[in-house]
């Protein structure tokens, strides 16, 4: 177990996964007008659970849990990006990323205070 895992618990991996998901959702939004593009998303809960398992790497966990989005209403050009869905997911993910950052900041503050003996 790396020292970062002991210090930061689940939050290090969570931040990395949130960052990957940010890129994936940005790719979907970038390809909103590309014919034939299939939107993808990572199942965050499942990916984090898989990454927490013994001997699992973060990459394999996120790859295994990246799925194609099922569109509510398929379009004729084969593009499955629905901007309302993507924008909601993007906003949710950005807030969750910031939440994880707050958790990490709290942990760092705790450790710094313990080291200083305040």
């Amino acid at each position: 177990m790396a020292i970062g895992d002991e210090l930061f618990g689940v939050h290090g991996k969570a931040l990395e996964l949130r960052s990957q998901r940010l890129g994936l959702l940005a790719s979907n939004i970038a390809n909103a007008a590309t014919p034939g593009y299939k939107a993808r998303d990572v199942d965050f809960t499942a990916a984090l659970a898989a990454a927490e398992g013994p001997g699992a790497s973060l990459e394999s966990a996120s790859d295994a849990n990246t799925k194609y989005r099922v569109p509510l209403q398929p379009s004729m050009d084969g593009n499955t990006v629905e901007l309302s869905t993507e924008q909601t997911m993007f906003a949710e993910n950005a807030v969750a990323y910031q939440t994880t950052l707050s958790f990490l900041n709290g942990r760092i503050t705790t450790l710094t205070r313990a080291l200083r003996g305040e």
Partner: peptide, 13 residues
């Protein structure tokens, strides 16, 4: 328009 997929990062532009 055409999707440009980057295998190294898994991103697509």
């Amino acid at each position: 328009f055409r999707t440009s997929f980057d295998k190294a990062s898994g991103l697509a532009t």
